[in-house]
Amino acid sequence: MAAAKNIIDENRASCEVVSADVLELILFRLPVKSLLRLKSVSESWNHTISNRDFAIAHLRRSKNSLFPSRKKFLFWDFSNLLELKNNELKPFWDHKINGYIVWQCCDGLLLLSNYDSSGNMFVALWNQSAKTYTNLGFPFPSPEYIFTCGINFDSLSKDYKILVTDLETYAVFSNKSGRWSELKEVKITIGEDIKSFPLDGHICWISQVEEEHSYTIEILLFDFKHDKFCKFFYDIGRLIFDCRLVHSPPGQFCMILADNFDKARVVWKKAGGEWMEFNDVPVPVMECHSEMHLTEDKELIFTCDCYGPPYIFTIYNLIEKESREISRPDGTFGPCHLFIYVDNLFFSGSTSI
């Protein structure tokens, strides 16, 4: 025991010799699970790993192409967690989110809600990389109905923020402060041009304006940076059969405008990027479940034959205009939520982040 303790002490002493800059370069390359274990090596290591700026820089590196092996597409169908690997869906690791409503995924953080044993609703976050679960409580005094929940990283304040609203009142949770804001009345500002809007917020809904000879889509967003709701009207130019919002990565917007039963127009925009439209995309709207997703590689993923076997995923690349199909494993059912595995130190159990 004494010999082992001496070795540990010597290793810790040698760790202190490494300069802070070199240490950060080394730690940046490590996954979250390893970083959480290394916090106990020394006070300086713990301070570095628990620093908010380090967490932001590590997240940025985790999301870029330097970590291709950690870029995993995961699907959650209320009972199973599946990974898309080599064009096949296979079971992923154990999870503890059975029975939860899945609202959104942002940078590997899964936003959930559920009811406790007393029937009270609460909002929670599940960090995939750290496998940690954080109960955020609930800001409404009598939680009977939520219209939407959303999560976004506010780059201005360097803070993850979570919106909960019933469209009459709303509250925002701040990761920095660790608490919910006071309930505020929803007041909607009419925006001028959706194409020039930065889209750095949670999109609440889209709908076709129900007026005779109307060719307009109504889009409601919440602007996390300025703490306000914005409504936009987009002239689609012609009468359409249906419109649906596509679940997209943070800072992106995508909607499907169905011209008929098996063809649609896809509208896509990335924050600070060009507004793009893709015509004649083969999306069979009548056969698709409303859960449709857009990946960062501009691949549209949707489910066909969702009311009976065989349960098939179709993945359509908007740029290459090619599609492929993937069968779901036995034992999976219902609509699936797509999210991307990202190493993220936020909400990982650290008291400082």
Rank of each mutant, 00 (worst) to 15 (best):
L110K: 04
A20V: 07
F197D: 09
D94F: 06
D21H: 04
G178T: 05
N11L: 15
V172N: 01
W93K: 13
S69W: 11
L220D: 05
C15R: 00
K195I: 02
D166P: 01
R328V: 04
S40I: 12
C336E: 05
L84Y: 04
L109C: 07
T165M: 00
A13Y: 13
A271P: 00
H213V: 05
F253W: 06
S142N: 15
M292D: 01
F78T: 13
K225M: 07
N279A: 08
M292I: 15
I97Q: 04
P31S: 11
L136Y: 01
H202D: 06
N344S: 10
P329D: 08
L35H: 03
I340H: 08
K96P: 06
T189H: 08
S44Q: 15
H47S: 15
K269R: 15
T134E: 09
R265P: 01
F241T: 11
V17H: 11
T169V: 14
Y341D: 04
I340F: 06
S323C: 11
E144S: 10
G108W: 05
K33Q: 14
D107Y: 11
I319P: 02
D227K: 06
F54Q: 03
Y100G: 00
I217C: 09
Y316K: 02
R244G: 02
F302K: 01
A57L: 08
F197P: 01
C288N: 06
L221C: 14
P31L: 10
I312K: 12
I194F: 14
I326N: 02
K231I: 13
E10S: 13
I194S: 04
Y307I: 10
T216S: 07
K231N: 11
W180S: 04
D53N: 15
Q128K: 09
L111R: 06
L221Y: 05
S157W: 04
I240T: 12
D330W: 11
I151C: 06
L183A: 00
K161F: 02
E218Q: 15
D9Y: 12
D94N: 08
L239Y: 12
G99R: 04
M292Q: 08
P309L: 04
M1Y: 07
T351F: 11
F253Y: 11
R238L: 08
D227I: 10
V285P: 00
K225F: 14
D21W: 05
V22Y: 06
E296W: 03
F333T: 14
V172F: 00
V281I: 09
H337D: 10
L109D: 03
G191Q: 05
L318I: 04
F224K: 00
F261I: 12
